[in-house]
Nucleic acid binder design. Sequence first.
DNA 1: TTACAGGTCTTGT
DNA 2: ACAAGACCTGTA
Length: 263
Amino acid sequence: MKIQISNMNLKQIAESGQCFRWKEINTDTFVIPGDSGKNIGLPDLTIKQEGDIFELSCNDDDWNSQWYEYFDMPTDYEEVKERIFSSGDEHAIEAYKEGAGIRILRQSLWEMIVTFLVSQNNNIKRITASVDAICDLNGGRFPYPGDIKPKIFEEINLGLGYRVPYLKEIYEYAAENPRWLTKLQSMSFEEANATLQERKGIGPKVANCICLFGLHQVDAFPIDTHVKQFLKEYYPNGFDFEYYKGIAGIIQQYLFYYELKHK
DNA sequence: TTACAGGTCTTGT
DNA sequence: ACAAGACCTGTA
């Protein structure tokens, strides 16, 4: 199928550090694993961008029931744009222009938990390699609790370094507490954020990433080394979180992407 | 060779 | 509550 979508750029999303399993098979053409979203059994999606026209390998039903949400179509990015431009905040405007096609994907919560545990004090290239290695344990599909035995992390070198016990423990915990994920989904941002940080290896930054990318809590604002640098350089007197309430997490992605590109 | 990467934990004050 | 220091490892 073929459709027109505004405010979306696949390449920018792929580079924005929120998804680590997209494969670019051609220029502006990506394969996205079907289990990246909320329906584990979905076929992989091939999607090709030409301007604001997108050609997808799925049918209308799968678009309407699955990928529409995955690409965050329910969010009005035109409104986000207007709020940024009417803010008078020149640094946010500048950052926005750099990554105007970024969207906050609505990805699998479990995948985000595991992925951002891996991400700490790490680089995107190695995170991708480790996530791929973790999927290889499960025939290429992202392993859910119970799909693999937690001890596997100690037995096979997946390039996780000191994060091995974190991964082992989170797989154990989630298998023993099967309602944990659904509980997180019913919590407020503050509750979910605090609950996530009860797990070993999940601190404030990783918890905010999980809230933003796995729970679509758009008030989450992960402060990593890049965003910290951006805030320090351009907002020495503080960043106006109040003004951006409701879209702070989206803004955060523009700042992150801008800083990543200008380094 | 040293520093850094989408940080967190432990320990000491 | 806050500040060091340690921590795997590939890349520049």
